[in-house]
Design a protein around this nucleic acid. Structure first.
Length: 907
RNA sequence: GGGCGCGUAGCUCAGUGGGAGAGCACCUCGUUGACAUCGAGGGGGUCGCUGGUUCAAUCCCAGCCGCGCCCACCA
């Protein structure tokens, strides 16, 4: 006998182990079938499972289990990412906490050894946690972005792209992180709003030149007086960079400045004579119309400087402290200390025009959180613009489709404006760049040092000592190769041939640029085919108030705690049920609890089967059922099956979950199980056996349909119910998804059972409204029943009396009893003689209310049908439906009116 | 500044060019042999506002209001 409640904590581990032991996750089990592949978005190797992972992997597992059951040869390729900056930071923090020497003191080799140790130590955590979620990845194929094979792929890609001119080294401004001491890509910069100031400085004009300024204004802000001044005003949010100014720009069409062609200003504090240049970058509307140009520390100014041949003076060292290129007084100062000092010094010189409060966006490093400095360095770049072109076309032509579709716009927008991708990082943890330098600076890019040396020998005609580039590649560089590197590329493996392009990529919108776009570029370039056919983009998981979860807010919900508390199935179902396209998920633990109750409900349905000996019958054909009840539930199952199948195919996981919930609880448990009781305990052996077999069969189908979303409890029930009946051929996860259930749909059975449900609901409703005690069994009289109704009443007598709590069901006598309650059902009228129980006035009021409601609807329908425009232009079926509805309402109304009349007569 | 999305029951959200739905919460009743992690019944919404298209708009279009997110160099 099953226990009353399912204990997920006890079952889940055992079930997962059984799956894994049976090799059920492995790809290649259906060699004759079509392949179906998903590559996992690789989590950080040293990370742990958060709610975003839980959602992401639940959805993937639903797809994978669904397609596996549909008979596809499924591969879910798992693995982890080395996560360069993140992991290196963790280990450095550990060293600091334990008061050990920092990485620079340890040296590269020792530090890397330490990171590898940390990877070995914590690297299994997240994959163990994915197992707890139920993820059916093919763990035998697990990969790591820095394992030997993937590193080989990285090197090959780098070398080839370099050979093709698509990777190059360049000296330009990068986003420099002065805390992590590395360059980062545009995407790793997050702008944060800061309340700062806009400082207006006076830069004295050289050679006695002057500018005309408005010195007084009227009420409308129009100038009323002018004066000539010997300085030009520039505004800046970053005063400290003025030490690197090498020009002042004004707009070529700005009349105020035309006479300054060839003029110069003397840069305060520095004394440098710098030119006034005419450039469209300067906006006459902004500030004074003149803008200071610091080519080495601002992305715009860099371009302006290039156009006008201005020198680039780098004033910062790697820590963003002022270097030797500034006046002695400022050398070595921290950037913000310098800012303060410079403002004070300019103030002392009377060169501060004004200081306005100013809110603006300041670039911050997404990992370090410090303000990013545009800094002039040598870095490696990928020519993303070139690689982007085929990637744009592939989405335009539909070779890869985004779901929901609107993300394609975001993708195009970014791809069309893509900038060179800075891929070198001044870190140690990662793929070291395969480039070697000769003493004269000559670069040799090669797969191995030996090859580089060889190339150098050929070039110089003698052996040369080469030094390897110290930098490593951006983590996303190796992630970009994931869909083919994990399948064995650059070798031509059978897996590569079978599973590339993969079918679906499931990921969050936050990494469309970081990852999806780059996989598209690399996949198309090296495989000549898109890496995936469909990109399903899901939303963010927020807390129940809609706030983004974050450690600092303290509102992080740990998926593992929810699994401990309610089971993995409940969590999975919750996530799926809320995964509506285009909307974030607000996760309330109470909701998970609700779906835990759903698991219990399912469990108890099995318990019911067990108690009633509903055992699986070998070769049972559900279409052979004779009872309307069993024919009806077959049809209901068929409809649920279609809904679930289509919903998963369309990535409408919420629809799938809701269809399952509705069928399992409100159709199967609420009605079918209740309906089956008389047959199961009745004396008609044939009816009993048919119902037992059908209950078992339907329940099996339900377990199958539910399995992709709730794998554990369904597998457990599959095993347990398997012990009672004919033995199972396979575990549930390898069972076959049903097909062709439409043959079970029987409209006449549907009509019959739906009528019985309406009857029972009507009686229950009356009872509750009139406060008939739940325990009281009352008689039901039927007036004007036709032949079909009479035989239905007879066939379902047991069910009706039981569920409506009736003493008897009989035809109404010619003279109706006094003070009976009446309801209309189809052609018949239901009469409940409750004179002694009810208040006649209250009953009349009840009927009167229904009448009023009906009247309103009848009037509405009549008006509509009386509208010539409607009758002329609406489609015939719509008019027909409207007429039928009206006719029906009118007959119901007539009989309700009769009932009211009888009631009045009785009173 | 550009782009995307959202505003439907108290809450969280589905949904559709032809009489608005779910889950939870709420109210009433219930120790009925699967299940109180349950059952039965019920209340509750001018579908953000204004206009337009249409025989018909919660749905399509335009504008507005409110709220998110993404991108962007505005000194």
């Amino acid at each position: 006998m099953l226990e009353k409640h399912y204990q997920p904590a006890r079952a889940e581990q055992r079930i997962y182990d059984a799956w894994e032991k049976a090799g059920a996750f492995r790809c290649g089990q259906n060699p004759g079938a079509k392949g179906f592949a998903i590559v996992i978005p690789p989590p950080n190797v040293t990370g742990s499972l958060h709610m975003g992972h839980a959602l992401n992997n639940t959805l993937q597992d639903i797809l994978i289990r669904f397609e596996r059951m549909r008979g596809r040869d499924v591969l879910w390729q798992p693995g982890t990412d080395h996560a360069g900056i993140a992991t290196q930071m963790v280990v450095e923090r550990q060293l600091a906490e334990r008061q050990k020497p920092g990485r620079r003191d340890m040296g590269r080799e020792a530090f890397l050894k330490r990171v590898w140790e940390w990877k070995e130590e914590s690297g299994g955590l997240i994959t163990r946690q994915l197992r707890r979620l139920g993820a059916s990845c093919d763990w035998s194929r697990e990969r790591f972005t820095m394992d030997e094979g993937l590193s080989r792929a990285v090197t090959k890609v780098f070398v080839e792209l370099h050979k093709q001119g698509l990777i190059y080294k360049d000296k330009r401004l990068v986003n420099w992180d002065p805390k992590l001491l590395t360059a980062i890509s545009d995407l790793e910069v997050e702008p944060r709003e800061v309340k700062g100031h806009l400082w207006h400085f006076r830069y004295p004009l050289a050679d006695g030149k002057t500018v005309r300024y408005a010195s007084a204004f009227d009420e409308d802000g129009k100038p009323t007086a002018w004066e000539q001044r010997g300085y030009i005003i520039v505004a800046t949010t970053r005063p400290e960079t003025m030490l690197g100014d090498t020009g002042v720009a004004v707009h070529p069409d700005d009349e105020r400045f035309v006479h300054l062609k060839g003029a110069h200003v003397i840069l305060p504090l520095v004394g440098r004579r710098i030119p006034i240049v005419f450039d469209a970058h300067a906006d006459p509307e902004q500030g004074s119309g003149a803008v200071k140009i610091t080519p080495a520390h601002d992305f715009n100014d860099f371009e302006v400087g290039r156009r006008h041949d201005l020198p680039q003076i780098n004033i910062f060292d790697q820590f963003a402290n002022l270097n030797e290129n500034v006046p002695q007084a400022y050398q070595g100062m921290e950037r913000y200390a310098a800012r303060k000092q410079i403002v004070a010094d300019l103030e002392a010189l009377g060169l501060v025009e004004k200081i306005d409060p100013h809110t603006h966006m300041v670039p911050n490093g997404d990992r370090s959180g410090v303000v990013i400095e545009p800094w002039l360095t040598d870095q490696w770049y990928v020519d993303a613009h070139t690689l982007a072109q085929p990637a744009i076309k592939a989405v335009q032509s539909g070779q890869t489709v985004f779901v929901p579709r609107n993300w394609e716009k975001t993708y195009f927008e970014w791809m069309n404006n893509i900038q060179p991708w800075c891929i070198s990082r001044q870190l140690w943890w990662g793929h070291q760049i395969p480039a070697w330098y000769a003493p004269d600076g000559e670069i040799f890019v090669a797969s191995t040092e030996a090859e580089a040396l060889d190339a150098a020998r050929k070039k110089f005609g003698k052996d040369t000592v080469l030094v390897r580039d110290e930098d490593v590649l951006d983590t996303w560089f190796s992630s970009a190769l994931w869909p083919f590197s994990t399948l064995g590329w650059p070798d031509e493996t059978p897996e590569l041939a079978r599973y590339y392009p993969t079918d679906v990529l499931v990921t969050g919108f936050d990494i469309i640029f970081f990852w999806v776009a780059r996989m598209m570029m690399m996949g198309l370039h090296f495989m000549k085919e898109v890496p995936f056919r469909t990109v399903y983009i899901h939303a963010l998981v927020r807390d129940e108030k809609g706030q983004k979860m974050s450690k600092s807010k303290g509102n992080v919900i740990d998926p593992l705690e929810l699994i401990d508390q309610f089971g993995a199935d409940a969590l999975r179902f919750t996530l799926a049920a809320q995964a509506a396209q285009g909307r974030d998920i607000k996760l309330a633990p109470a909701r998970v609890e609700g779906y835990r109750n759903f698991v219990t409900k399912l469990w108890n349905a099995a318990r019911f089967s067990e108690m009633n000996e509903c055992r699986r019958v070998e070769n049972f054909d559900p279409a052979s059922c004779k009872l309307a009840l069993n024919r009806w539930i077959g049809g209901e199952l068929a409809r649920a099956h279609v809904r679930v199948t289509e919903a998963i195919e369309a990535h409408r996981y919420n629809d799938a979950a809701n269809a399952l919930y509705q069928f399992a609880w409100h159709v199967f448990c609420d009605w079918y199980v209740e309906f089956s009781k008389p047959a199961l305990s009745g004396s008609d052996i044939a009816a009993r056996d048919e119902t037992r077999a059908m209950t078992a069969w339907i329940f099996d189908q339900l377990l199958i349909l539910m399995h992709p979303v709730m794998p554990f409890v369904t597998e457990e029930l599959w095993a347990l119910t398997g012990e009672w009946g004919a033995p199972r051929e396979t575990m549930l996860m390898l069972a076959r998804w049903p097909r062709d259930l439409d043959r079970l749909i029987d409209p006449s059975a549907d009509e019959e059972i739906e009528w019985v449900i309406r009857l029972i609901t009507a009686v229950r409703s009356v009872r509750a409204e009139l406060n008939v005690p739940a325990g009281a069994k009352i008689p039901l009289l039927i007036k004007d029943a036709n032949g079909a109704t009479q035989s239905r009443l007879k066939d379902h007598d047991g069910v009706i009396t039981r569920l409506a709590r009736l003493a008897s069901v009989t035809p109404a006598p010619a003279t109706l009893p006094q003070g009976a309650v009446q309801e209309v059902l189809g052609e018949a009228t239901l009469i409940l003689p409750l004179a002694d129980v009810i208040d006649i006035a209250a009953e009349r009021a009840r009927l009167q209310k229904s009448l009023e409601k009906l009247d309103a609807e009848i009037t509405k329908a009549e008006t509509k049908l009386g509208n010539a425009a409607f009758v002329d232009r609406a489609p015939v079926q719509v008019i027909e439906t409207e007429r039928e509805r009206l006719a029906e309402q009118q007959t119901v109304r007539a009989r309700l009116a009769e009932a009211v009349a009888r009631l009045s007569a009785a009173a």
